[in-house]
Structure formats: C-alpha cells, structure tokens
C-alpha cells in the first residue's frame, strides 16, 4: 500500500487526540509514581526498577480500560499503547522522585 493510500485510511485528528490522551495519562502517572518513589525512599537502580513496574502497570491499565484490549482500533501500530511516552515520562518521574526524596528524607 502506498503512503497516499495509508494517509487516507486514518483520521489524523483522532490520532493526535489519542496521543494527547495517552500522554496525559502517562505524565500524570509518572509524576505520582515519582512522588511515591521519593516517599518510599528508593535510591539508585531500585527507583528505575520501580518506574519500570509502574509504567507497565499504567500500560496495562490503558490497554485494558481505555483501549478495551483492542489497541489496533485506536493506534496505527497496536504496540504504541505500550511504548508511547514511556521515555518522556521517565524525566518527570526522576524530577518528582528527587523532589519528594529531598523533602521527606534529606531536609528536616
């Protein structure tokens, strides 16, 4: 299939809207899990392992509750629901992790 045909196969506004929804969920969840990691006092690799587990949990929630287990209907590539915005979320995760760790564990 040529690119021209593929472009007319999808509605581009809906693609943008879906990506926006997924980004909202991802960034909120990474901020909150980052705060939790800081409160729990995780350091080093444990924090990144915690991010991996919680982002897998978030992906599963999106896949099951938002995409009704049929991501092919909402994304051009069905695997996007697991990978979209994971690395972008890592930065806000680290930000909130260090902030809450500093507030709770370091300064008193």
């Amino acid at each position: 299939m040529t690119t021209q045909n593929q472009a007319s196969l999808y509605v581009s506004e809906k693609i943008v809207q879906n990506v926006k929804t997924i980004t909202f969920i991802r960034s909120s969840m990474s901020a909150i899990t980052g705060s939790a990691a800081g409160i729990l006092g995780l350091t080093g690799y444990y924090g990144f392992i915690f991010y991996g587990i919680t982002s897998l949990f978030t992906s599963f929630l999106i896949w099951s509750a938002k995409a009704q287990a049929k991501p092919g209907l909402y994304f051009r590539n069905g695997l996007d629901v697991w990978t979209e915005g994971v690395f972008g979320g890592l930065f806000s995760y680290v930000l909130f992790w260090t902030l809450l760790y500093g507030i709770v564990h370091v300064y008193d």
Partner: peptide, 25 residues
C-alpha cells in the same frame, strides 16, 4: 498506604482522561 494511593490515582486518572477515538476512516 503509599502503594494504595498510587492505585487510587491510577483509577482516577483513567476515569478523568477522555475516551480514545477510533482512528479508522
């Protein structure tokens, strides 16, 4: 308590975020 609050937040964010739209023409 911390882990439970993560779960509560996850449910609330899923509820607040709008539904996904089908993208096929």
């Amino acid at each position: 308590e911390c882990l439970i609050s993560i779960v509560i937040f996850a449910i609330s964010i899923i509820m607040v975020a709008g539904p996904l739209k089908p993208i096929l023409m």
